[in-house]
Design a protein around this nucleic acid. Structure first.
Lengths: 152, 152
DNA sequence: CGTGAAATATGTATCGT
DNA sequence: ACGATACATATTTCACG
C-alpha cells in the first residue's frame, strides 16, 4: 500500500460514486492503472464494500440509542448467543465488546419507542444471559462518519 | 416513497457498486425508470452519499473506543465549541448527544493508545468545557452496519 | 504504467399507458 | 405522472507495447 493506494482509498471513502476516470485523474494515474489498483484493494479486502448512506430522518428511523449491556456471567456460550442475536437484529447497527464494568455497547436505530421496545425483547431479554443494561437516548447525532483516518 | 423506491434503497444500502442496469433488473424496472428514481432519491436527500467501507485492520486503525463525556455546565456556547472540535477531529467517527447523566457519547477510531492520547488532548481537554469522561475500550467490534431498517 | 479499441453502461429523447 | 424503448454519449475493461 503505497501513496497512490492511500490517495485512492481517501477518495473512495469520501465518494464511492466517482467514476474510475475521475478517480484516476484525481490520484494522477491512467484509468487502467487506477482500475487495477482498485481491484487489488478489493481483492485484498482493504475495500470491504460500497454502500449508500441514507438519511435516517427521511426513512423514519432517526431514534438512536446507545445501550450499555452487562452480562450475567463471563461465559463463552452466553456471549456467543448474545452476539448472534445482535448480528441478526437489524435495529442494532453497531456492537462493541468492551473492557471494564460494561460488557457490550450497542448502537440501536429505530423509528420510535415501540421499535426500541421490540429490540429489548428480541435481543436483551431473549436468551437470558443479560444481567443489566443502561440506555442513553440520543437527542441528536452530531456526527456519523464512515471514513477512517489514513495513517500514510 | 413507494414500494419500488424502498426496494432500490434496500439494494443500494447493501451494495452501491451495482450498475444501474443490474439494479433495475433486481427491482423490476427498466434502466431509465430506475435511474430517474435513484436521481430523485438523491435530489431529495434520501440517499445522502455513496462511500467505500474500508477494513480497519488493513489500515492500522482498528482500536475503537466508546467515550462518554460529561460537560462542566449545560452551556450553549460550551456545547457548540465541543461539537465543533468533535466535527473537526478525524478520529471521532461518531458523536451522539444524549440525555441523562452523560452528555455526549463518542466513537473514536485510532491506530493505538498514542493516537487516543492525541484525541484526548485535542478534543476533550482543549477548550475547557469538559468536566469528566469515561473510556470504554473496544476489545472487538462485533458489528458495524451502515444499513438502516426500512419500515415499508 | 500508458494507449487505444471493443464491450458495457449511462443518460436523453420520445412515445405509450 | 410514470414507465418502456431506442439511440447517443460516456465509461469500463482488456490486449498490447
Amino acid at each position: 500500500m503505497d501513496r497512490l493506494d492511500l490517495r485512492i482509498l481517501d477518495q473512495l471513502q469520501r465518494d464511492a460514486s466517482l467514476t474510475n476516470q475521475a478517480l484516476a485523474e484525481r490520484v494522477g494515474l491512467s484509468p487502467s492503472a487506477c482500475l487495477k489498483r482498485v481491484r487489488r484493494l478489493k481483492a485484498r479486502g482493504v475495500i470491504q464494500r460500497e454502500v449508500a448512506i441514507l438519511a435516517p430522518e427521511a426513512l423514519g428511523t432517526s431514534l438512536h440509542m446507545v445501550v450499555e449491556v452487562i452480562m450475567a456471567r463471563d461465559d463463552r456460550a452466553l456471549y456467543r448467543d448474545f452476539v448472534r442475536r445482535v448480528e441478526a437484529a437489524p435495529e442494532v447497527t453497531q456492537c462493541y465488546q468492551v473492557t471494564g464494568e460494561v460488557d457490550f455497547v450497542l448502537i440501536v436505530s429505530v423509528p420510535d419507542m415501540r421499535g426500541y421496545d421490540r429490540f429489548c425483547e428480541s435481543v436483551l431479554y431473549a436468551g437470558g444471559g443479560m444481567h443489566k443494561f443502561r440506555t442513553l437516548i440520543s437527542r441528536k447525532r452530531n456526527k456519523f462518519e464512515t471514513r477512517l483516518p489514513l495513517s500514510g
